[in-house]
Design a protein around this nucleic acid. Structure first.
Lengths: 199, 199, 199, 199
DNA sequence: CATGAATGAGATTTCATTCAT
DNA sequence: AATGAATGAAATCTCATTCAT
């Protein structure tokens, strides 16, 4: 990804630009965001941008990849050591809501990628799904969960997290209410069908 | 929205613009779509656009509202007369995939609304959710389904449909494979937990 | 100027357009005024405009000529029968302020003509000056006034009227205060030099 | 106004734009003047304009303020050291005609301000009038001139200068003829009334 | 006589990117 | 490394005018 800076000053500038870009893209979306806006936030001159990134697309792509990786690390850390799949789901959901609460811009940034760089957009979800499928497949082998098609379930779960996050994290103002998290996990565990002893 | 045409010719032109806009927005997203692009598709001159719509935003908003209504009508028709909630879900999912298969642009248009007119964007999902919640609440009264918080479940189901639609309708090239639909409905019915007799 | 209407309805429409144009040009200036604006005010459709006037320039020119003529008639009436030149000046100034108080748009319309149709603009002032010079020359012959170059004096007097009108009629909100009119006429009568018995 | 350039090259470009704008506005009036026209005259690209001025309005306003100041300085220099008020008037008129002869565009620019920025337009004349009134009031205290309302007289004199300038400088092709200047000053000195010994 | 639709030229403005210093 | 100046393409929108009905 473009020239990597060799001095400490350079590294600082580069980081400042990335942070500024996260804010700018998140606030305005890719197309309405401007390089001037980013450099103004980063408090450097317009020309400096091109010392570190070859184009607007490039910094955007780097941002999406970085966010994706940080999210996946955050989730991995949150569920590491949990053996029970349903507990892992609960922990994962919580961690996801936490992460996007701190990176509210993420929604807009990722969603914008659809028109900026479709391959990147798919990569983001595919990568995420792949990890998810692995976890589910392992749990199925253990007999912990039951599904004929783990990939489908992975996308279902991603959709759930995405929409709940949008509705209660992005549009709400605090953390996701407990009753929502509980109802969601009950749904994930036992679906809609009435069960004796379902929460 | 804006002046409605009084002659048949005018109505034809206005419709042509709306159709062109659906395609243009779907392909390029709101910001990259251009009025020139829309009028070129509609085979009218640039200025004609402004005879019918006061701005790019306005035609976009009208489009979202119209698509929202058509989708809801389509779904209502698909599940009307079905008493069993789970059968209704199946029919609803199918109809949803069908609709977006025919209006692939819709996805992208709605997702993009976030940056164009956030109120509209929320309205779209809120309106949809409201109808969903009603259906679920009724089913819960009948004892057909079990959940402590129908609103949460409505958003979960919307997320599922949305993500499956993205993955298999938008990115795929045919209808949603049966195994996906079956796995999804199994998940909706009984969740992840292993059940004797789950499909 | 363009087609003169033969029916009563036509004459009404034409007049409505002229009145609308006076208001529109006065409010917005020639370039910012629009045909749509004029036709909207006149409550006719856009196309109708061109039944009566061949162009925006044409209606503007007609307006300037009409206003010019009405102003000159108004002034002629005001001073007719007055033999004393200084009394005539007083009456003329009063009548001028009165007229522009009722046609406040006149300033902007005439001043705009400079860039729309310079010949028209000059014609307006030249025509006015010509009449003025005649009056002054006659008075000089009678020994009523004293000047070596009546044309210069005519332009001086026009400048005075114009600037006082702008300052006290256009920017003020009532009629020109008496003290202003008095001071102006004293100035016209005896200039700046101190005279025994000057008001 | 807006960003001031920090390099010599930038200062040159900014000045070129201002000069070009003076010519363009003077020739075509504010509304017909175009940014393209200005940049073409200044021999820079269209986009460069916006490096220095945020809008057409802004450069216009700056121009009017600068011209106003230059004119006032020019006049102040011309009458400085002259004690006799009537001699000062003569010198002032001369200097005024001289100035506008060199900045013929100025007239048209200021007159046009009425439609662009009325506050600016009034500010221009009010500022000018204020200085004039001070001079006249001082002369009245000295018994040099006689008027009951110096403000009125100031506006009369401004009107005279303006109209003579329009007629003989703007529409003429050389300097104001002596006979005109003489007749005007005679009028300013003794008005219309016949006086023994009036020139 | 009147209308509504259509046109296309032109205006302002924004912005990613390049370049000389 | 950093900067400010310059570029030019493209986008939205306005509007006088023409035309078919």
């Amino acid at each position: 990804m473009s020239t990597l800076p060799s001095t400490a000053r350079g590294r600082r500038t580069r980081r400042a630009l990335l942070d500024a870009a996260e804010a700018e893209f998140g606030e305005s979306g890719f197309d309405r965001a401007s390089i001037v806006g980013i450099t103004r936030r980063a408090e450097v001159s317009q020309g400096t941008f091109y010392t570190y990134f070859p184009s607007k697309d490039a910094i955007f792509a780097e941002l999406v990849r970085a966010l994706s990786q940080r999210l996946r690390e955050h989730l991995a850390a949150a569920i590491s050591g949990i053996d029970d799949r349903l507990s892992a789901e609960r922990a994962g959901f919580r961690a996801f809501f936490e992460f996007i609460g701190e990176h509210r811009d993420m929604y807009r940034i990722v969603r914008n990628a659809e028109f900026v760089d479709e391959a990147l957009y798919r990569w983001y979800y595919d990568t995420f799904a792949k990890g998810y499928v692995e976890g589910l497949t392992a749990a199925r082998k253990d007999g912990q969960i039951d599904t004929s098609h783990p990939e489908t379930v992975a996308w279902c779960l991603m959709g759930i997290a995405d929409f709940l996050g949008m509705r209660w994290v992005l549009w709400g103002d605090g953390p996701v209410p407990d009753e929502v998290l509980d109802a969601a996990l009950a749904f994930v565990r036992t679906g809609l069908a009435p069960h004796p002893g379902a929460s």
